[in-house]
Amino acid sequence: MDGATQAVAERLQDLLKVTRLLKHQRTAERPAIPAGLVGLLAHIDRTPAGCHARELALHAALDPSTISRAVATLVTDGLVAREPDPHDGRASVLVVTDKGHAAMEEAMRWYGSRIEQALADWTPDEIATFSHGLDRFTRALGGATTSHVTTEAAA
């Protein structure tokens, strides 16, 4: 690994650490949504007709048992409800409840205020460049991860 690649890896570790600390801070200050479940709740919300747990597992790249526990927590907390699947009476879909919508909106406002604070002294061009670069890096790293897993599975 060359020096520039090493620097990127170190910054990525720093970002993961700060993200973890932000999640814990949000949970301590605003515990309406358990730590680590905001993204899952948001994905369920983006699926207007309801979301199956298996789709959620695929989207989040998590084991179905992990999703099952997360969904059980969201349901117990009243943030998500299981409703009959209109296309398959044997299955259920997950939908965000009114309480879930309110909690998610509050969490997004909280995260948004932290991001706005972090970017307060950045120019619009710096923000746009960073957003573009982060998107490009995330897609490239995701592609590298997918191709690495596929290569290992084929071996």
Rank of each mutant, 00 (worst) to 15 (best):
S113V: 10
V71Q: 04
A70Y: 14
K99P: 01
T123F: 04
S68G: 12
H24Y: 07
D125M: 07
V93D: 01
I33P: 10
A140E: 15
P64D: 11
D77W: 10
T66A: 05
S92N: 13
A81F: 00
Q13P: 00
I44K: 02
S68Q: 11
L58T: 11
T19Y: 12
H43E: 07
A128E: 15
L16R: 13
W122P: 03
S65D: 12
L16W: 08
P84M: 02
V149T: 09
T151F: 13
V80E: 04
D88G: 01
E29I: 00
P48S: 11
C51K: 00
R136Y: 10
H24M: 08
V18T: 07
P86N: 06
V71C: 01
G39F: 01
K17L: 14
L58G: 08
A32E: 15
A49P: 02
L79V: 05
W110P: 09
A32P: 01
R20H: 10
Q13A: 13
L94K: 08
R54I: 03
D98S: 08
T145N: 07
G89Y: 03
L134R: 14
I127T: 15
T129P: 04
A49N: 14
P31R: 08
H43L: 04
W122G: 00
D88H: 11
R30P: 01
P64A: 00
H52V: 03
A72K: 14
Q25T: 14
A144H: 10
T146C: 02
D88Q: 05
L58H: 11
S147I: 04
R69S: 09
H87F: 05
L15N: 05
H87G: 08
A153L: 13
S147E: 14
G39M: 03
G39R: 03
E10V: 12
T73L: 03
R90S: 13
D77H: 13
V95P: 01
D85I: 01
D121M: 00
L134T: 13
S68E: 12
E152A: 14
L15F: 08
F130S: 06
L22H: 12
A128L: 09
L12Y: 12
K23V: 04
A140V: 04
D77K: 15
A120Q: 13
T145R: 13
A61K: 13
L119M: 15
L41D: 01
P86M: 07
T123K: 06
P86G: 07
R11N: 07
A107Q: 12
L37F: 06
Q25C: 11
A153R: 15
L74K: 05
E83A: 06
V38K: 06
Y111W: 09
E152D: 09
E83M: 01
V149M: 10
E126W: 01
E29M: 08
L119W: 06
H43M: 03
D121Y: 00
T145A: 11
K23N: 15
T19C: 08
P48E: 06
H87K: 14
L94V: 09
E116R: 10
D121R: 03
R82P: 08
L16P: 00
I115H: 06
T73M: 01
T76N: 11
V95Q: 13
P34I: 03
P64T: 06
P124T: 02
V8S: 04
V80W: 02
L40H: 09
Q13D: 11
R114D: 01
S65L: 08
E126T: 02
R26N: 07
T66K: 09
T150M: 13
T146H: 10
A28F: 11
P64S: 03
A128H: 10
D98N: 07
L12D: 12
